[in-house]
């Protein structure tokens, strides 16, 4: 459903992503791994249109999306979370989720100004869905708390709920387990599987190999912006180039 063709991204001299081709199949949980600075987040940024790729093409459901503005890519069905959490800090948890639903709301300027019956109905339904999503990620009971005041693990989950609110077909998670303890990581693994059960394809970046091996079906390994391996967890684990790349770094 997501296809990258020889995507590169240069920052001046630095080639952060170099000719990556990638195909994410519908309904899978796929992972991108690689040492720090390998270009993983940059690849996400290219997919979501923060910076268009320097060269190469990106297709989503056979539509070419590189060059589209970010909000259009999001509305087309790609949602994401961020490596360094970017919630709307001083908005209630539920308002964060509601903001995520924005692209699917129909209220026009007029409705917002006058609070027309249609707007009230829509708002009520949206709120109901938002509550359901909060429940789904295990955040019932904190819906009125400011995002900023939630514990770290809850913030990560709220970010996922917010992303799900935009009804994505593809969800990009940038290091969702970073900073979590083993119990939280296990819960996160379950959550990601449950998301896939909802018919959402997941592509995640993760440093925790245990988690990746446990939940992912396809793994792509980046190093210095290049794809050095691709395959199932077992294949990747035994790939000599991957082992070499990881031996050089301290990442387990």
């Amino acid at each position: 459903m997501l296809r990258l063709e020889r995507v590169s991204k240069r920052f001046g001299e630095l080639v952060a992503v170099n000719g990556i081709s990638l195909n994410v199949l519908r309904g899978t949980i796929a992972a991108i791994i690689g040492p720090n600075g390998a270009g993983k987040s940059t690849l996400f940024n290219a997919i979501t249109g923060i910076y268009p790729p320097s060269s190469g093409e990106i297709f989503f459901e056979e539509k070419r999306i590189d060059g589209w503005p970010t909000h259009r890519i999001a509305a087309a069905g790609i949602a994401r979370t961020f490596q360094n959490i970017r919630l709307f800090s001083f908005m209630a948890a539920i308002d964060n989720v509601l903001a995520g639903e924005d692209a699917h709301l129909h209220a026009r300027l007029w409705d917002s100004l006058l609070h027309t019956p249609r707007q009230r109905r829509e708002e009520k339904e949206a709120r109901e869905r938002a509550r359901e999503l909060l429940r789904f990620v295990g955040l019932e009971g904190v819906s009125e708390t400011y995002a900023r005041n939630l514990p770290y693990g809850s913030q990560r989950r709220l970010e996922i709920a917010r992303a799900l609110a935009s009804r994505p077909k593809l969800l990009l998670l940038d290091e969702p387990a970073a900073g979590m303890n083993p119990r939280e990581k296990a819960e996160l693994g379950d959550l990601v599987r449950a998301i896939r059960e909802r018919g959402i394809t997941v592509l995640l970046i993760e440093h925790d190999m245990g988690l990746v091996m446990r939940i992912c079906e396809e793994i792509t390994v980046l190093d210095y912006g290049e794809c050095i391996a691709h395959g199932t967890p077992t294949e990747v684990r035994n790939d000599p180039r991957v082992i070499a790349a990881y031996l050089g770094t301290a990442v387990a």
């Binding site: 999001a74 709307f88 800090s89 001083f90 903001a99 692209a103």
Partner: peptide
């Protein structure tokens, strides 16, 4: 409110 808090994240929400 969302763009005031984080414009980039807001764009990612389809706003």
């Amino acid at each position: 409110m969302a763009i005031r808090e984080d414009e980039l994240a807001a764009r990612h929400m389809g706003i």
